[in-house]
């Protein structure tokens, strides 16, 4: 008999032994099967000193799995450092939401502070096809550099200025909107009268000296 056949037969008998718990009445190799039965019956677990204590510990761990997992997590230094970084990042998140895209403050040159600043032209690279409704309205960022917002309390404190146009009664007794030819001192013009005010438009010849001031340094 070849070894393969012997092994096949032995394994069949062994499976029967393990399944039924007793050796078959007839065996092709009683010595080997007897040893297999001895191995199957061997139990070394009586030597264990931790069986009960480990059971109690794991049963406790099964109940408080989350607490144990957290305890194990904080036992690791790397995990502790990562957790600290995460806490710092999360605590700083509200500041990021409050000042989205905040430009770092740059000291404006003294000369430009009093000059009117031209509004920046729309960028050519900006997405043109983007629907206006899809755009998220961004809150104006309170920048402290070139532009400053005036507090509402300060605005309210200022007195209301008079409208610099004469009252309609003085110029237009009719009080109706209309256009009249006017002859002002320096040239022809037109007077527009509305219900509430009169506007004087005059046409006259001006020179650069009328507009620009020449200063001698």
């Amino acid at each position: 008999m070849k070894e393969t056949e012997q092994a096949e037969l032995f394994n069949r008998e062994l499976d029967a032994l393990l399944l039924e718990g007793k050796a078959p009445s007839f065996s092709s190799d009683p010595g080997a099967l007897s040893l297999a039965a001895e191995l199957a019956a061997s139990d070394f677990s009586g030597e264990s000193l931790i069986k009960e204590s480990l059971r109690a510990r794991l049963a406790g761990g099964e109940a408080g799995g989350l607490i144990k997992a957290l305890r194990e997590l904080f036992a690791n230094n790397y995990a502790r450092a990562a957790m600290a970084v995460a806490v710092v990042v999360v605590s700083l998140l509200p500041l990021v939401h409050r000042y989205p895209g905040r430009v770092p403050e740059v000291a404006a040159p003294a000369g430009t502070a009093s000059r009117p600043v031209k509004a920046p032209a729309a960028r050519a690279s900006a997405p043109v096809s983007r629907p206006a409704a899809a755009r998220k309205p961004s809150r104006p960022a309170p920048a402290k550099g070139l532009f400053t917002s005036i507090p509402m309390a300060k605005l309210e404190a200022e007195p209301i200025k008079d409208f610099p146009i004469a009252a309609p009664a003085a110029l237009s007794p009719e009080g109706e909107a209309g256009e009249k030819e006017a002859s002002p001192e320096k040239g022809p013009g037109a007077v527009f009268e509305t219900g509430s005010a009169t506007f004087l438009l005059e046409r006259r010849v001006i020179t650069p000296a009328d507009i620009f001031e020449r200063r001698v340094i």
Partner: peptide, 15 residues
């Protein structure tokens, strides 16, 4: 089948 042969050989060696 390899497991079966290894098992048989091991038991014979132990025996």
């Amino acid at each position: 089948s390899n497991v079966g042969i290894l098992l048989f050989r091991a038991v014979k060696k132990m025996q």
